[in-house]
Write a protein that binds this DNA or RNA. Structure first.
Lengths: 161, 161
DNA sequence: TGCCGATACTTGATATTTGAAACAACTCGC
DNA sequence: GCGAGTTGTTTCAAATATCAAGTATCGGCA
């Protein structure tokens, strides 16, 4: 069986289009994530999930609940519990019971955590800029918008299938 | 906090541009991966890494070495060993020592593995097409090309930093 | 030959992630 | 106030991933 040339129809192209696109999206994301992740580990003894979690807290001066962290970082609940415990033991975050709801825990950055994150963020920024430097500003914007459309798809109610 | 207008310089825009882009790229990829991964598990008792590995073998009728699998799937060596062992025990792949190099193992899809993958691929294709259906053909092509440029960056020799 | 530095892969210890079940604290209608 | 269902979080075991170190083989060369 050499060079299987099976018949193609019009939709075939679309299908392969979408598949190739997904493959490439996944590859790009994974490569960059590995790149950044290993750099974070090497230079800061950290990781991408930790960085991601800290960055959410950095933007939320009033702290966030575990559930909010879970949503925003795309990590599962159990994972957030685990990450926060580790970061807490290193003194980067604190937890306190919410006054309004005693089930909920509010997580905040400590001053030390804030400094730690700021340092990582600076380095992170440099790496990312370098990685995307092969695109023009316009291209970056286009890419951003197209991905926005894709992402949109997930906010909508379940598709009919 | 309403429209905090802090001083900006020219590079500021670029930086945030790149960061936001990376964040969105990562988010899109992760969401789709979770979506597809859980569907693969639910309907086929499989996972994205397994699917990925099988798809590489599907395209390589002559089989692939462990090392090649590792490169192509972006998984670490140890992980590939682990995955292949699992798939082998389920009868989806076989391993044999390469005749040319007794260190190397050549992995191939079994007929059963081929059928298994084909079934998953059909479903996978449907999901992906649905997920990207909010883009026009042209947009998909543009996205694909832009990501290609980004990916390119990693084939080049180390950047000066 | 016989040794040396690469290579291809596996192993084992450890780290991380997931998913489902378990808990405790909420809310609401009564 | 009292259950019944909800919600926010943790726990625990199983699945998966990583890293470093180990084993076997190779290719070449003195």
């Amino acid at each position: 069986m050499t060079t299987t040339s099976r018949p193609r129809n019009a939709s075939d192209a679309t299908e392969h289009d979408a598949l190739r696109l997904w493959l490439r999206l996944f590859t790009c994301s994974t490569i960059i994530a590995q790149h950044v992740g290993s750099a974070l580990k090497r230079e800061f003894g950290s990781s991408l999930p930790r960085f991601d979690l800290l960055s959410q807290l950095y933007r939320a001066p009033d702290g966030l609940r575990m559930g909010e962290l879970s949503e925003r970082t795309l990590a599962t609940g159990g994972n957030v519990t685990w990450l926060v415990r580790a970061l807490e033991s290193e003194g980067f975050v604190t937890r306190r019971v919410a006054s309004s709801d005693r089930r909920a825990a509010i997580v905040r950055l400590t001053p030390s955590g804030r400094r730690h994150f700021a340092a990582m963020a600076r380095a992170h920024e440099r790496w990312i800029i370098a990685l995307f430097s092969s695109l023009t500003t316009t291209e970056r914007r286009t890419l951003h918008e197209l991905l926005g459309t894709v992402k949109q798809r997930f906010r909508l109610p379940r598709t009919t299938e």
